[in-house]
Design a protein around this nucleic acid. Structure first.
Length: 493
RNA sequence: GGCGGCAUAGCCAAGUGGCUAAGGCAGCGGUCUGCAAAACCGUUAUUCACCGGUUCGAAUCCGGUUGCCGCCUCCA
């Protein structure tokens, strides 16, 4: 069984067949650079980041292109309101975007082109559409004539008649058909412009993706992705433009990620419930956010709420507890470097074999429509297995057992790398988590440390009443203490 | 109005024709611990919104009902 995933074009899961063996071209629609990224952008970025990394994990040579839209009405409006030009707006938000995505553990795409760097290509493509009779010029504007493209609607599963029946289409005098969309927009006073055969103007939104994908990936490429909302009209229009101009299939597979909702509602500016990525990452570790997203299937909607994020945080804690235990055990002065699987027997052998199965199970899950939720379930299985192994009274840090643990750790890290999880040192993770949570709750960490010290003295004197009293005081603030041989540590429960 | 999606335990969530319906969070009982925390063991859906149908067999396929949601306008 090979890799298969859901193709929006056919509405079913299909076996993946790349155009060229071992190679793959993927284009994903990126952001319009006029504002900070929100968690919806983060989900899309994380979904395609995992897909990108998984294809590489499976041995594909992937060219991943994700664009920046750096000219559009919203950018112009923002530039005008700030009394500046569009470039200073887009440069700023592209920089912020990159900063946020880096912090989120999202790998940079192979190529990240900008619309404004491809204006000549757009003009050429529009010309080709005009020559083929698929577009028309009205007063310096160029429109795409949807009636002329017979495949119009094939991606979103609609036809022109159905859409005409919808009552929400604006009538525009210039358009021959209300569904026609703009390819080239003539410039009004004070707007940025480029010279074109139709006068000064700027490109419509959809044309850039047709041009940039074709430029870097060819006329026909493997995968095109983006958020669900882009299916119509954006992706439908891209198909019309690209296939209309080349006569070739545009993208073979279409992947669309589901939306993030906030407390059961759609995220929207009017509801004022937009969470930007930066706020979210200040409130939760980026890996907690990734776990939250990846524990649901990429096509399902997910609900962003304190409860769901707290669940994810607890799950992440479980992973890092185990990673910490393994790390601590592996720091024992026992050398396991000469060991091999042949030296194992009994329990060691059994655990080793089950631990070794993780990458295979991971592939089984991921090959089935990138089922990260199932894959994460398998990692939790491994966590329980390893915890049980270490909790066994018979367990001791021998060359054999450490060899097994090392294998477990490597396998968790290996699959975690694809998901963007477990990349942190466990001690560092808990340290960060403690600070972040304490800050969220407005707790004074010095005060906590002082009480812990007082409790240590009480415990040394076997004054259990006072020790428990301090535990209760802190517990009331959700500070949970953990006593161990090395001293007392705390975390927010 | 048109098109499409979803409904699985207290919550989140995998599973799309057939072994005991993954996994996480929360809860409960036990082991461990001065007490805890973490961890481990056990336990928590005879049942997959509801009603019919197909089938030897369905959470999974078909029809209907109800509820929720998305797109049709910028949108990840």
């Amino acid at each position: 069984m090979g890799l298969r995933f859901y193709n929006t074009l056919t509405n079913r899961k299909e076996d993946f067949r790349p155009i060229e063996d071992g190679k793959l071209g993927m284009y994903v629609c990126g952001i319009t650079a006029y504002d900070m990224c929100h968690i919806g952008h983060a989900r899309s970025a994380v979904v395609f980041d995992v897909i990108f990394k998984y294809f590489k994990y499976r041995g594909y040579n992937v060219t991943y292109v994700k664009n920046f839209t750096d000219v559009d009405d919203k950018i112009i409006a923002k530039a005008n309101s700030e009394g500046t030009d569009i470039t200073s707006i887009t440069e700023r938000y592209i920089k912020e975007h990159n900063e946020d995505m880096d912090r989120m553990g999202v790998a940079r795409p192979t190529i990240a082109p900008k619309a404004t760097e491809n204006i000549q290509g757009m003009i050429r493509l529009i010309n080709a559409l005009l020559e083929r009779g698929l577009a028309y010029v009205v007063d310096g504007d160029v429109y795409y004539s949807v009636d002329k493209f017979k495949g119009y609607g094939k991606l979103s599963g609609r036809n022109l008649d159905d859409m005409m029946a919808g009552a929400r289409i604006d009538i525009d005098e210039k358009k021959k058909n209300p569904l026609d969309f703009i390819l080239w927009k003539s410039a009004k006073e004070g707007e940025p412009w480029w010279d074109s055969p139709w006068g000064r103007g700027r490109p419509g939104w959809h044309i850039e993706c047709s041009v940039m994908s074709q430029r870097f990936l060819g006329e026909t490429f493997d995968i095109h992705g983006g958020g669900r909302d882009l299916i119509f009209p954006h992706h439908e229009n891209e198909i019309a433009q690209s296939e209309g101009a080349t006569g070739q299939t545009f993208a073979n597979y279409w992947i669309h990620n589901g939306f993030i909702r906030v407390n059961q509602e759609k995220m929207s500016k009017s509801l004022g419930n937009i969470f930007n990525m930066r706020e979210a990452m200040n409130m939760y570790h980026p890996e907690v956010l990734r776990l939250f997203m990846l524990q649901s299937h990429y096509r399902s909607p997910v609900d962003f709420s304190d409860e769901s994020l707290t669940d994810a945080r607890m799950g992440m804690e479980r992973f890092y507890e185990t990673l910490k235990k393994m790390k601590d055990a592996l720091s024992a002065a026992v050398d396991s470097s000469d060991m091999s699987a042949k030296d194992l027997s009994g329990k060691d052998k059994e655990v080793f074999e089950r631990v070794q199965a993780l990458p295979e199970r991971f592939v089984e899950a991921m090959d089935d429509d990138f089922n990260t939720a199932r894959a994460i379930g398998y990692i939790f299985d491994t966590v329980r297995l390893v915890n049980g192994y270490m909790a066994d009274k018979e367990f001791a840090p021998t060359a054999e057992s450490l060899f097994v643990l090392d294998e477990a750790k490597k396998n968790m890290r290996r699959v975690g790398k694809v998901l963007g999880l477990f990349l942190e040192d466990p001690d560092e993770y808990f340290e960060q988590d403690k600070k972040r949570e304490a800050q969220k709750m407005g707790l004074d960490t010095d005060e906590i440390d002082r009480l812990i010290e007082e409790r240590r003295e009480a415990r040394t004197a076997k004054n259990w009443n006072r020790a428990d009293e301090i535990r209760d005081i802190l517990a009331a603030k959700k500070v949970v203490l953990k006593d161990s041989a090395g001293g007392t540590t705390w975390k927010i429960g």
